[in-house]
Simulated assay, not measured.
Amino acid sequence: METEIILTSTATQKTFKSYLFFWAGQLFSMLGSSITQFVIVWWITISTGSIVMLSIASFTYMLPMAIAFPIAGVLADRYARKKIIVIADSLQAFVTLYIIILFNMGMAEPLLIIIINGLLGLFQGFHIPTVSAIVPTMVPKEKLSRINGITYLFTGFIHIIGLVIAATLLAFLPIKLILWIDPITFIIAIIPLIIIKIPRVKKEKTLDKKNSFIKDFSEGFQTLKLIPVVSMMLLLSMFINFLIRPFNILMPYFVRFIHSGAASDLALISVFTYVGMLIGALITSIKKNWKHVISIYFCGEFLLMLPMVIFAFAPQGYFLLMGFAAAGFGLLIPILNTIYMTLMQKKVPPDKMGRIVSIDWTISTAISPIATLFAGFIADIIGVRTLF
């Protein structure tokens, strides 16, 4: 028997202020995670010198995340989202502490770290859809577009800082000390989360109180079918993700072994990427209304391919040229994502938002583990530059 839902708007000025407090804490957590992931990926790159190992590292991180997304979406619509975030974030902190212990005891082996890092991907798979699902319940509709743009603006800024900090610290400190930043930022981020109240979507006239997991998840697909524009965007995103995955995954190897670069060169390219994201996010935060959003989105997705062409033909050691290409890539990301997320948040019912977000992330990233392994093994045969 179906469950009849009456939607109740929960987003007010009070919840919006609470969201900003929560979001500020998440920025600290993001900073710690950014530094940690950069350091771990660079360590795997220089420790193994293997394209295949680098692709396996990404595969073991992405696969658990992709598996967790649909489960997390249903849980986020069934249970208290605040508890889910607290549990997922706490488990991530404990895993990072375990990695720190391994490095301090001299027991860190690339394969072991790769497997453990997969747990971080798993917990992120629960964190991301849940946090995304609470946005429309705490941010008023008229502020959604701008808050999405501002979110990408600050996200890009935090990642720039994280990359600069990580590259600088790698030149002076051992990894076992740098990794402590992540647990420290977790403590800072958890304080606002504990203090604020996250509203739960109200359901009324419930005719059938217990739905199975499969039924809940299938309702998300049924809802998605009723919004064809979002469905088309989602499918295109999956296709583009498959094409650009080698570009993202093999960049550390490309910089270190193809162009004889250092961690600072990889950080430089990454900083340019996030500077582009900052500019794109600034544009989206200033521009309130977009015209021809569908055309902008679909054209923009295909323009993301251009930087890969520039990287493939860049002369040896031309990291500045690569940086400008990466900045163009970064510029498009917040614009395209803001258009997509705003459309989704406006069209999807709040009580199904968790499931839709999880379906979105699942489909968009489901191809990533396959593309990751494909990229590693093919690049090992034909070369990274040729694959780009």
Rank of each mutant, 00 (worst) to 15 (best):
V384H: 00
V139H: 05
A66P: 04
I310Y: 06
L268Q: 08
K210Y: 05
I190R: 00
L7F: 15
M353S: 13
Q124G: 10
S285P: 09
S58Q: 09
P64V: 09
I283L: 12
I161L: 11
K82W: 02
G118W: 01
A379Q: 08
V255F: 11
P315T: 12
G330L: 06
K347D: 15
D360N: 07
V357P: 09
I56Q: 13
M344Q: 11
A267P: 02
E301Y: 08
K83H: 00
L122P: 00
T60S: 00
N148M: 15
L282Y: 10
I116R: 01
D265H: 10
M238R: 02
Y152K: 04
L336G: 05
V164T: 02
A108C: 09
I6W: 10
L304E: 04
F154N: 06
G118S: 05
S9N: 15
A371D: 02
V271M: 07
M30Y: 03
K82Q: 04
F302N: 04
L122K: 01
L320Y: 14
S58Y: 03
L63G: 01
F388R: 07
A171F: 03
P136C: 09
G121R: 08
P349R: 14
I128K: 11
S132R: 06
K205N: 05
I370Q: 02
L234P: 02
S9L: 15
L250C: 08
L250H: 08
V139W: 01
T342Q: 09
N248G: 14
S368T: 15
R385W: 00
N211D: 08
L243Y: 06
L179Q: 09
T96P: 08
T130G: 06
D77Q: 01
S285N: 07
M341F: 12
G162N: 08
A371G: 10
I128E: 11
M251E: 06
I99G: 12
S270T: 11
K215W: 14
S145G: 12
L173C: 08
L266F: 04
A166Q: 03
P140T: 02
G383C: 05
L120W: 07
R355V: 11
I339A: 10
I187P: 04
A371C: 03
G280A: 06
K347Q: 15
H127G: 03
L7C: 14
E204M: 00
T185S: 05
I378E: 03
L234T: 08
I283G: 04
I339C: 11
S29K: 05
K291A: 14
R200K: 09
S58C: 12
E109L: 14
A262E: 13
F377S: 03
A325I: 08
M233Q: 03
G323D: 12
L321W: 03
